[in-house]
Design a protein around this nucleic acid. Structure first.
Length: 259
DNA sequence: ATGCCTAATGCAATTAGA
């Protein structure tokens, strides 16, 4: 079973690229972030025609997340991240569904820049709610994959040049500690577990010729629950998608689980 | 310190991204 995450940076701007990638790589599950579209503008029919059932949580202009499942409909288990403060949170950043017996959490964690400031506070508060949801899923003993754009560079190994980014919200000790606390619950960072010591990037800024220079960051992650970790067979980044015309600034990132 | 690029909004220039 192949599970992917892809920050599309605009579902409608990216639709041809998304459909091409789905056709080429045939993931069983695809978690999408940054739809940048309200619910009514989601291209559900085009995605169904490509063979995927879908659920989505949109928002005008910003954010937005979706879960696609090949040949079946995801069974929604949560829309929006629950927990303290969730009633005041209008940003569409979390959706969760069961697909083929696995719970899939699709998340778009707040960027948090500039820091310090209210956006960084929101990031850390959102992270706490994610930790809470993650703990509840573990306690229920479900097989779970938490996939998405975490907006965290976990270590200095996960970025081309940490010195240039030391004041950025993505590298702050608080952001990294929150990510580590999540892992300490028992989750496995699949890409890192299967490729220790390797340079792996999932995002390259449009600015400053970053992709041709391979000046990237690893911020899109797939975390798997303890029962799924032994089933990890492969993991990777579809870098060629980032190289194409009209590409997102993120590349699709995926894992494959043994049956 | 700012521009460099891209998408959305809405039709010019601003906001946000990371």
């Amino acid at each position: 079973m192949k599970i992917a995450t892809f920050n599309v940076n605009g579902i409608n701007a990216r639709l041809p690229a998304l459909l091409q990638w789905l056709e080429e790589t045939q993931p069983d599950v695809a978690c999408l972030q940054e739809l940048k579209a309200p619910d009514a503008s989601f291209p559900g029919q085009a995605i169904r025609d490509a063979g995927y059932g879908a659920i989505w949580h949109g928002q005008k202009a910003w954010n937005g997340v979706a879960i696609l499942a090949r040949g079946t409909d995801p069974v929604e288990t949560q829309r929006g991240l629950p927990g303290p403060g969730s009633e005041d949170d209008l940003q569409s950043r979390y959706i969760e569904a069961a697909v083929q017996g696995i719970v899939i959490g699709c998340l778009y964690l707040p960027n948090g820049n500039p820091q310090p400031g209210p956006k960084f506070d929101y990031k850390l508060a959102w992270f706490k709610r994610l930790q809470r949801r993650a703990q509840a899923l573990l306690k229920a003993r479900h097989p779970v994959v938490l996939a998405g754009d975490y907006n965290v560079v976990p270590t200095d190994e996960d970025i081309y040049n940490p010195a240039n980014w030391r004041d950025d919200a993505l590298l702050q000790p608080e952001s990294r500690a929150a990510y580590q606390q999540l892992l300490d619950q028992g989750w496995t960072d699949a890409l890192r577990a299967l490729h220790p010591g390797e340079r792996i990037y999932t995002f390259w800024d449009y600015l400053r010729n970053r992709f041709p220079r391979d000046a990237g960051l690893r911020i899109d992650h797939l975390l798997v629950s303890p029962d799924l970790a032994p089933r990890l067979a492969a993991a990777g980044v579809d870098r060629e998608v980032r190289a194409r015309a009209k590409a997102s600034d993120h590349a699709p990132t995926w894992i494959s689980l043994r049956d």
